[in-house]
């Protein structure tokens, strides 16, 4: 009786493995590519689809590519693991891609696989985070220092240069966290009445931000602004202020970064947040560049993306670009 159920379980498991092995078999034609019948194959190696911002990046790539029937994009997710992403690049090359788009988890471990692809003659577009050296075709990214500075400038302007701030940081061992802090500090430096009274590393997580904001609220009777390194943290801080029951969520200005359409932008629209600064994914731009490269046109080595901000004043008109 017992043996039989184990045999059933075993045979189920084995047939599952067999089915998985047989499933993705497909043949590739060997004629010239770049037509709707035989599209160019682009490999998109994403480092972590656990982050909504990166899900948005893939979506931007997918939507942009959908406009071009001569392109076919293969997506692969490294699940926040550099070593997995090394294998992902090799897998994509083995599947015969014509161009590689990669948003690397970290520079050092992914420099070699990217360089190997580049040397084989496969053009490589590096998105958001850089790799070391020069062995790639094009880097597309935004400037976190500039965005942090823009947020600081907005806060100084909105408060007349006099306010107390709670800074809810992103993971401070990550470059975006460090740069969003650095740019912000540069912006408020010349304003002695703009003071950061409390700061905490919230690791990009909303529950952490809510807890830290509760601590800040219980320590400081006067808080004018919350500067959060990402929008979920600003949202968590708003919920903390609202739950406190003193109506402080209406007085404090909540400022965040990323401006995803369903997060930051929606929060500003709902009056939860006062301003959010877009950190563009570059997904659409990557497809533009990919087409140029595949058609043999020249592209710049470095592309810095522009950014927009959304606040109470401009949210209805779709935000405003930052120079």
């Amino acid at each position: 009786m017992k043996n039989r159920s184990i045999v059933v379980a075993e045979s189920f498991f084995l047939s599952l493995c067999l089915a998985l092995c047989l499933a993705p078999a497909q043949a590739a034609p060997a004629t010239a590519r770049g037509t709707p019948q035989n599209p160019w194959k682009i490999g998109m190696s994403q480092c972590n689809l656990g982050e909504p911002w990166r899900v948005q990046m893939n979506k931007d790539v997918k939507d942009a590519a959908a406009q071009h029937p001569e392109l076919d994009v293969i997506f692969i997710d490294a699940q926040n693991d550099s070593r997995r992403q090394q294998t992902d690049v090799e897998t994509l090359l083995a599947r015969g891609i014509d161009l590689l788009i990669i948003s690397p988890k970290e520079a050092a471990p992914l420099t070699a696989p990217v360089a190997a692809a580049y040397k084989k003659g496969i053009p490589v577009i590096v998105l958001d985070r850089k790799v070391l050296g020069e062995e790639y075709t094009c880097f597309i990214g935004a400037d976190n220092i500039k965005i942090g500075r823009a947020a600081g400038d907005w806060i100084v302007k909105a408060t007349g240069g006099k306010c107390t701030i709670v800074e809810l940081k992103g993971l401070m061992t990550s470059t975006p966290g460090q740069e969003r802090h650095k740019g912000f500090m540069e912006a408020i430096q010349g304003h002695p009445d703009v003071k950061v009274v409390f700061d905490a590393d919230c690791k990009w997580l909303e529950p952490e931000a809510r807890k830290e904001m509760e601590s800040a609220l219980s320590r400081f009777p006067a808080i004018d602004v919350v500067y959060a390194h990402n929008d979920p943290a600003a949202h968590g801080a708003y919920l903390a202020a609202k739950a406190e029951g003193k109506g402080r969520e209406k007085v404090i200005k909540f400022v965040g970064i990323d401006a995803l359409p369903h997060e930051g932008v929606a929060y500003v629209k709902d009056g939860v947040m006062n301003a959010t600064f877009q950190y563009p994914t570059g997904g659409a731009e990557a497809i533009d560049m990919a087409l140029k490269i595949l058609k043999g046109q020249k592209v710049p080595k470095n592309v810095t993306l522009g950014t927009r901000y959304f606040d109470d004043a401009n949210i209805q008109s779709g935000g405003q670009a930052i120079e």
Binding site: G50, P52, V55, P261, H262, E263, V265, A266, K269, D270
Partner: peptide, 21 residues
């Protein structure tokens, strides 16, 4: 991740190409 499609399931979401709350 299957149920959510990898995104957070929040009150603001895309419907027919537009964001509704």
């Amino acid at each position: 991740k299957l149920v959510s499609g990898g995104q957070k399931v929040s009150t603001a979401f895309e419907q027919n190409g537009d964001f509704v709350t």
